[in-house]
């Protein structure tokens, strides 16, 4: 399912002294089946943008096309439920929203809310809990008896149980240990590859953006600063550093070597294996 934002503006608390322009002139498109990373400073408008993707927020100017639906400024929208079911959002620290007495009830809440029967919802819960790498016997437990990492997975399972076509992730690994981080990111990538789920990831990790995404969108002060493939985005690292953003470790290291050694690289290296090969080549070139 394709999502397009056309000249989108969003103002919080319009016509109050607290009115705040959070997004302006946003024109982007996320094609069906792609993986998009959104990066940018805190306050650059990432979370506001995400909430437009399933019509939790309606633009104050412009239009949002979600599949065959159009959300337009100033127009009343009915029947937003199907959109919310098709576009699942995993918010930051989603475990803070767990509330029910058992894991199963918590996961079933979403699907049942969308009109799925209890029997069917339980099936979905069982499927989702396995997808997030937990075993079925956890379903009868209270979510509050679980470890932090397990709670995070249960919360994600709650979103997966709605069988969304598009998965929107707002810093899904914040606070997890390195293994938990990698496992969760690999899990999302797997869902993307195997089930063809379109994925939109907000992250501060340039390594994750470079590793998983087809496209990267850089948000700055409420609008799109730049978009492109990881190769395109990271081929001008100085631009990002000027904005005070990070670049992947590998690219930062290339910059240092260029400066200290005077060697040249013909492309940004986005993984360590490639970087080691290119350094070896560059050192040998220097020999001649």
């Amino acid at each position: 399912m394709r999502i397009t934002l056309d000249d989108v503006e969003y103002r919080y608390q319009v016509n109050t002294p607290f009115e705040h322009l959070a997004l302006h002139d946003v024109n982007i498109s996320m094609e069906s089946g792609t993986y998009t990373a959104i990066i940018g400073h805190t306050g650059s408008g990432k979370s506001t943008l995400l909430q437009h993707l399933n019509a939790l927020l309606k633009p104050t100017k412009g239009r949002v096309f979600i599949g065959d639906r159009t959300i337009e400024a100033g127009k009343k929208e009915k029947l937003l439920r199907p959109i919310r079911q098709k576009v699942g959002i995993v918010f930051q620290f989603p475990e803070h929203q767990l509330f029910d007495e058992t894991v199963e009830k918590d996961i079933c809440f979403g699907p049942m809310n969308f009109g799925v029967s209890e029997v069917e919802a339980k099936k979905l819960a069982r499927k989702a809990i396995v997808q997030v790498g937990l075993s079925e016997d956890i379903l009868v437990k209270s979510p509050f008896d679980l470890s932090g990492g397990q709670m995070r997975r249960v919360a994600i399972a709650g979103v997966l149980a709605m069988e969304p076509e598009v998965l929107v992730l707002d810093e899904p690994t914040a606070g997890l240990d390195p293994r938990g981080r990698k496992e969760i990111m690999d899990m999302f990538y797997d869902l993307h590859k195997v089930r063809g789920i379109s994925t939109i990831l907000v992250t501060h990790s340039m390594e994750d953006a470079a590793k998983y995404a087809d496209d990267i969108i850089i948000m700055h002060q409420g609008t799109v600063f730049k978009k492109g493939t990881p190769q395109e985005i990271f081929s001008q690292p100085e631009q990002l550093l000027e904005l005070g953003l990070d670049v992947p470790d590998t690219v930062r290291f290339q910059l240092k070597l260029q400066k200290e050694l005077g060697v040249r690289f013909d492309h940004p290296c986005l993984n360590i294996g490639d970087l080691a090969i290119e350094i070896d080549k560059a050192m040998k070139r220097g020999n001649r």
Binding site: D249, L257, G273, A276, I279, D280, M283
Partner: peptide, 27 residues
């Protein structure tokens, strides 16, 4: 990874600066 590729850097660089320095010397 560099050692795997035959670049003879030494072990124990905990910071990028140290590794860059080592590479500069090799270079």
């Amino acid at each position: 990874e560099l050692q795997k590729n035959g670049v003879r850097v030494v072990n124990g660089h905990l910071t990028e600066e140290e590794l860059v320095k080592d590479l500069c010397e090799l270079h």
